[in-house]
Simulated assay, not measured.
Amino acid sequence: MSDRIENAKRALGLVDLTNLNDDCTPEDISKLAERTVTDHGSVAAVCVWPRFVAQAVKELTGTGVKVATVVNFPQGGVETGAVVSETIKAIDDGADEIDHVMAYEAFVAGRKGFVEEQIIRVREAVPEPAILKVILETGEIRDPLLIHAASNIAIGAGADFIKTSTGKVTVNATLEAAEVMLTAIEEARRDNAERVIGFKPAGGIRTSEDAEAYLALADRILGHNWASASTFRFGASGLLDALIATIEGTEPAIGQGY
């Protein structure tokens, strides 16, 4: 079996199959749920708007596929109380994972203490075994030093994962931002080997080649055995079809991303 097929099989189990389209309907969520279990294995999770969490939980019961949702999305606002309430509602509806958009504009403006406090408040609303992913919006932060600092703030405030992007801005996941974030995770691991922090690139990852490049980067920085569904996810809508096409030897399908 070729390395490309092996890598596609590896990536398939790391996908957060996503529909965060503004016009998403309950029917779209049902179609999303139907795609989660394939002949080649299951995706890790679906990621949906908060209003669809309860439906997704019901439709995925028994599959082992997690339900993730987004809060403070996509703007990364500063109304912490509203974000906490949104998070509590999502957890009550059955969400396994919360993808929280860091208040990245406040961070760039120098309000690092505020940003940290907001993440801490959201973290307090996400009880174990639910997990918290913090979206940095690296394409808007831009500066690698600031991306590194944002990674450290999110990790220090209790994030289980750090995630590149919402998929709603001009520049989303890049390998350059991923390298900075994975390096921050490695540094945190050196400081505390028992702390497990994951990584999620999201937005614009559409092909098997894209997935392979991100996994190769993670392997180089954190070791070949590091990336698993508990430490690494791809946030994507079109990637699953491309991975299946690679595994089955058909023409790769290019998805629309999100």
Rank of each mutant, 00 (worst) to 15 (best):
A154K: 04
P201C: 03
F199Q: 01
A202W: 00
M181T: 00
G156Y: 07
T170A: 12
G156E: 11
L217C: 08
V169S: 15
L217T: 09
V196S: 09
A184T: 07
S151F: 09
L215G: 11
E179R: 09
G203D: 15
K200C: 10
A202H: 01
A150H: 11
T207N: 12
I185K: 02
A211K: 02
I197H: 10
I153M: 02
I155C: 04
A159V: 02
I185N: 01
V196M: 13
R206Q: 09
A211F: 04
L175V: 13
A216S: 15
A216C: 13
F199V: 06
I205N: 03
A173N: 08
M181S: 00
K200Q: 12
E209N: 15
S165T: 05
G158E: 03
A150E: 08
A150S: 14
K168D: 12
A213M: 06
A193T: 14
A211T: 08
E212T: 15
L215D: 10
E187L: 11
L215E: 07
E176C: 07
V169Q: 13
V169F: 13
A202C: 01
E186I: 04
M181G: 00
A188C: 09
P201S: 06
E194P: 03
M181Q: 01
E187H: 14
E194G: 10
G158D: 07
A173E: 03
L217G: 11
A216N: 14
A211N: 05
G158W: 03
F199G: 02
E187G: 10
I153P: 00
A157D: 14
N172F: 08
A213S: 10
R195H: 00
K163M: 00
V196L: 13
A173C: 05
S208I: 02
E194S: 14
A213W: 03
R189V: 12
I153V: 06
E212N: 11
A150N: 08
A173K: 07
K168C: 13
M181K: 01
V169H: 12
K163V: 00
V180C: 13
G198E: 07
K163L: 01
G204D: 06
I205P: 03
T174V: 01
T174M: 05
G167H: 09
A216Q: 13
D210T: 04
A159H: 02
T170W: 12
E212A: 14
I155A: 02
E212Y: 12
I197E: 09
G167R: 08
I197A: 15
N172A: 11
F199A: 01
